[in-house]
Design a protein around this nucleic acid. Structure first.
Length: 895
RNA sequence: GGGCGGUUAGCUCAGUUUGGUUAGAGCAUCUGACUUACAUUCAGAAGGUCGAGGGUUCAAUUCCUUCACCGCCCACCA
């Protein structure tokens, strides 16, 4: 049972991936004797390729799931992918484009066939990449949002909500992506500040009143950022209180370039301060204008084709793209002297979140979900703390959104997705009246319920992808069917996600949970940061600053990737390639420490590896101080790490682990006991601590720990399903830490002295210990260790010699924690400079003393400060005075 | 425009909830060490007016307030 000299992450990782898979280690089943713990994965897009965001998100989930699994929960991590409507369709459309075809040219059926073929071939890429990361999902359960069963859930929900009156069809201004040629929800339209222009255009009055006498008044100037939409103007609006325009209200204007006569209306919506205070009203192309149009019964003129080119309403501009039309219209206006000026204007422009195309507000008939009634319980759940969002400040963002929620446009004019389960009767003439009503049904109706016509047509649209993913926590468990899985694993426990999809997904899942299950979907939501490059920019392919997680896995291993990501995670994570070295180094450290222990504990390793409760063979009273200390330190770390995981403070948990394993176990414990490994108790302790440390490290760095554990313990099937260590109070020696500190301090003190005065290893050091006698014994007992680690040949410890005046040879010393170590310095150091240094030291201390005295003499302080604070200050004053005394007497000796 | 967060060492961040010794890490820098588990290592050092002003207090990095700068989210002012 030996470990190779060099750790090979790639080999080890593939070995354990195979093992886990073959043994189906991560499978979870309803188990009445155990408590369930459930996480559902935020389903990555089928088109997805593993990026750092995935790596972070899934590592966080994996840590928690592995921890809970070891804690004895029946831990289910439900994996799956999302069909990602527009994104996936885009991929296949691009393929078609290469063949010179379009989705329309091949037709809906053929296109869908292609999509499914693409999915079958490539849809699993992201899943296998997540697997590589070490994600302990129950992989055979992998769901896809367009699985048959899952689709049933989607249809069920549509019908339920429709029957409840919460889904309706309406003609509205929606966000339209001219490239994808589909509606987008408000959340899918990303607003970005753009430097645009504000165009001021003259709209002449059609019947100018000559009596006014002033030529200036013969037109109204309107300001717009989208001059091309003027082709669809059906009014100009002003604020009713705006005195400049009162006389124009109800007059008619001539729409330039078009010649249509339009009215001047008054509406409170118009802000007198903006632009000229007069707004052109284009009901078909702006949501506000649409609303105004409704209020004033204005005509609606749609001027664009779905691809945002101008339609026949645009007269001479017909066929032009919207931006081309804009240029031409501006030029034409200028030619006619109607363009007053163009100003720079910074404003938010909506872009398609998939293809970045500028969104065009467009009037169209879409399906909507009424959100207010759904939002109420979801809002309350967070406000009352039934669902906790971490970090807490995100709850405010959530509440803010929920309180201002708008209806959700769920229909999309694409083909990849769940087709809207609605049919229309297009049949026989004799029943037109009633048949206008849509037929909403989970299955295709045979005939129209009103007229009996069999000539039915299904709605062409599909549903927003999020309309399926908002059901994820229960639809993946089999809903709408009821089954054991659903009963046992729902509600899930923790949801981990990036802030970007808080509204898209998290908020809607909460609503769906309450609406369809009557229960919250999860209890905790952890919002983690975004992975950025070293300069703080988002990682993206287009910027070329992305670090490929697969490359890191290849080079350093998945362990290193995971460990480094987590330890660097604060809010956002700034990452450069070198940051991953820490993970690689730590895995290497674990490997080598284990090698050392294995090499030295060979005699009992076999026996040890067979027994589960090794602690029983540990007799705490027989252990030396370092062993008692490291065990106490382990249990301390165990508690802190457990707490940190439960409280979602993962980077802190890793820091605790690293401090313990690297800083205590390797740097101190193993160094201290290295020379004494023939002691069977030390062997036992070293193995015991190593084994348990592997357990608490495992969720964070699963592969290397699994590999070493497999050599250390042949009883468990594997570490992934081993038990999390339990606290064993009997093994904790409470004073060990304090005592050990004295040893560590003394070693450090002597090391300092050696370095400072350049003492050679073969020189002896007389350490005069100014501490209570008990510690003297401690130091004497551990003298050999101190000597070895401080790298001196001889260490003479003598408490009786602490009469500073008698050590006339001059002493110089160092104080470190509890002890002071003095060494003769004659011939070692320049006395004059040493005196100077000490004088400076004294001065500084005196200054502190003065400050303290002033405070302690302040009657306010004495009367108002708590007693313990005063006591501490007095104590400090005392010790400072003492130090000054000592220094003075040394100084006196020096002279 | 509304909301939320941040500003602590050269860099990345802890700490501040509940004010109280000398404000902590890691990386980077510098100095030492070839100590046979590990140079992917070990031991040290240096580095801070805790963004600025004001207030409360015996005491403020911590609480309150104003300001500056940075970031994020939301938003139909054309």
């Amino acid at each position: 049972m030996e470990l190779s000299t060099k750790y090979n992450p790639q080999e080890t990782e593939s070995k354990w991936l195979k093992f886990w898979k073959d043994k189906n280690v991560f499978h979870a089943e309803p188990a009445p004797s155990k408590k369930p713990f459930t996480i559902v994965i935020p389903p990555p897009n089928v088109t997805g390729i593993l990026h750092m965001g995935h790596a972070l998100n899934n590592t966080l989930q994996d840590i928690l799931v592995r921890y809970k699994r070891m804690k004895g929960f029946e831990a289910l991590w439900m994996p799956g992918t999302d069909h990602a409507g527009i994104a996936t369709q885009n991929v296949v459309e691009k393929q078609l484009a290469k063949e010179g075809k379009s989705r329309h040219s091949v037709g809906r059926q053929e296109f869908l066939k292609r999509l499914w073929a693409w999915k079958e071939e490539n849809g699993n890429t992201i899943i296998s990449q997540l697997e590589k990361l070490g994600s302990s999902c129950d992989w055979p359960r992998t769901r896809f949002t367009m699985d048959d069963e899952y689709s049933e859930a989607v249809k069920e929900v549509f019908v339920l909500l429709y029957n409840k009156g919460l889904i309706y069809r309406g003609e509205r201004i929606i966000n339209w992506c001219p490239r994808c040629q589909t509606a987008l929800s408000d959340e899918e339209a990303e607003h970005k500040d753009k430097n645009g222009k504000l165009y001021y255009i003259k709209y002449p009055i059609s019947h100018p009143e000559r009596s006014e006498g002033s030529l200036k008044k013969q037109h109204i100037i309107v300001a717009t950022t989208r001059p091309e939409t003027m082709l669809g103007d059906t009014a100009v609006a002003v604020n009713p209180k705006d005195e400049r325009y009162i006389k124009f209200i109800d007059k008619t204007l001539v729409l330039p370039l078009v010649g249509r006569e339009i009215k001047v209306i008054s509406d409170d919506f118009v802000a007198a301060e903006f632009g000229t205070g007069a707004v052109k009203v284009t009901p078909a192309h702006d949501p506000n204008d649409f609303a105004m149009g409704q209020r004033h019964q204005l005509e609606i003129v749609n001027i664009m084709h779905p691809d945002a080119s101008i339609n026949e309403e645009g007269g001479p501009y017909k066929g032009l793209d919207r931006f081309e039309a804009r240029k031409r219209i501006v030029a034409d206006l200028e030619a006619q002297g109607l363009l007053v000026k163009i100003e720079d204007h910074k404003h938010a422009v909506a872009h398609c979140y998939r293809c970045e195309t500028i969104v065009e507000p467009r009037l169209s008939k879409q399906w909507f979900v009424k959100m207010k009634p759904l939002a109420e319980p979801a809002l309350e759940a967070v406000q009352k703390g039934q669902i906790k969002i971490h970090p807490g400040h995100w709850a405010k963002v959530y509440v803010n959104w929920m309180e201002n929620i708008q209806d959700w446009c769920i229909s999309r004019q694409i083909w990849w997705g769940h087709r809207v389960p609605v049919w229309y009767c297009v049949g026989d003439d004799h029943c037109q009246l009633k048949c206008k009503e849509p037929i909403v049904s989970k299955t295709a109706p045979e005939k129209c319920p009103h007229c009996g016509s069999k000539n039915l047509k299904q709605d062409e649209d599909v549903l927003d992808t999020w309309f399926s993913s908002w059901l994820w926590p229960f639809a993946t468990l089999g809903w709408p069917k009821t089954n054991e899985d659903l009963k046992y694993f729902y509600p899930t426990d923790t949801l981990m996600t990036a802030s970007e999809i808080l509204f898209f997904w998290v908020a809607r899942m909460v609503m769906a949970g309450y609406e369809f299950m009557g229960k919250k979907p999860f209890s905790d939501v952890l919002i983690h940061g975004t992975v950025r490059d070293a300069k703080g920019r988002k990682m993206s392919k287009s910027l070329g600053n992305a670090i490929d997680p697969l490359e890191i896995i290849e080079e350093y291993g998945a362990d290193a990737l995971r460990y480094s990501l987590i330890i660097n995670s604060g809010q956002d994570i700034f990452i450069s390639k070198e940051k991953f070295e820490i993970g690689r180094n730590f895995a290497n450290k674990i490997w080598n420490a284990s090698r050392l222990v294995f090499m030295n504990c060979g005699s009992i390793l076999k026996e040890f590896s067979h027994s589960e409760r090794n602690e029983e063979s540990l007799n705490i009273n027989r252990l030396d101080l370092p062993s008692r200390w490291i065990i106490a330190r382990f249990y301390d770390t165990l508690q802190n790490v457990s707490r940190a995981i439960e409280e979602f403070r993962y980077s802190e948990a890793e820091t605790l682990i690293q401090d313990f394993f690297w800083g205590n176990y390797c740097d101190w414990y193993l160094e201290l006991v290295k020379a004494k490994f023939n002691d069977i108790n030390i062997q036992k302790t070293a193995l015991f601590v190593l084994k348990n440390a592997l357990k608490i490290m495992h969720p964070f760095i699963p592969f290397v720990t699994e590999e070493i554990y497999s050599k250390l313990n042949t009883k468990d099937e594997c570490l992934s399903i081993a038990n999390w260590p339990e606290l064993n109070e009997q093994l904790i020696d409470k004073v060990a830490a304090q005592q050990m500190q004295v040893i560590l301090d003394s070693i450090t003190a002597i090391r300092n002295i050696r370095a400072q005065w350049n003492i050679k290893p073969n020189e002896s050091i007389n350490a005069f210990v100014v501490t209570p006698g008990t510690w003297l014994r401690l130091l004497q007992e551990n003298c050999a260790d101190i000597q070895r680690l401080a790298r001196i040949d001889q260490l003479n410890i003598d408490v009786k010699a602490v009469n500073l005046k008698n050590t006339a040879t001059a002493l110089v010393g160092t104080t470190y924690g509890a002890i002071k170590v003095f060494v003769p310095l004659e011939g070692i150091v320049d006395l004059e400079s040493e005196k100077k240094r000490m004088n400076a030291d004294i001065m500084e201390k005196k200054k502190s003393i003065d400050g303290l005295n002033a405070r302690l003499n302040n009657p306010d302080f004495v009367s108002k400060a708590p007693v313990d604070v005063i006591a501490k200050e007095k104590e400090r004053l005392g010790s400072l005075n003492k130090e000054v005394c000592e220094l003075n007497s040394i100084l006196a000796n020096l002279s």
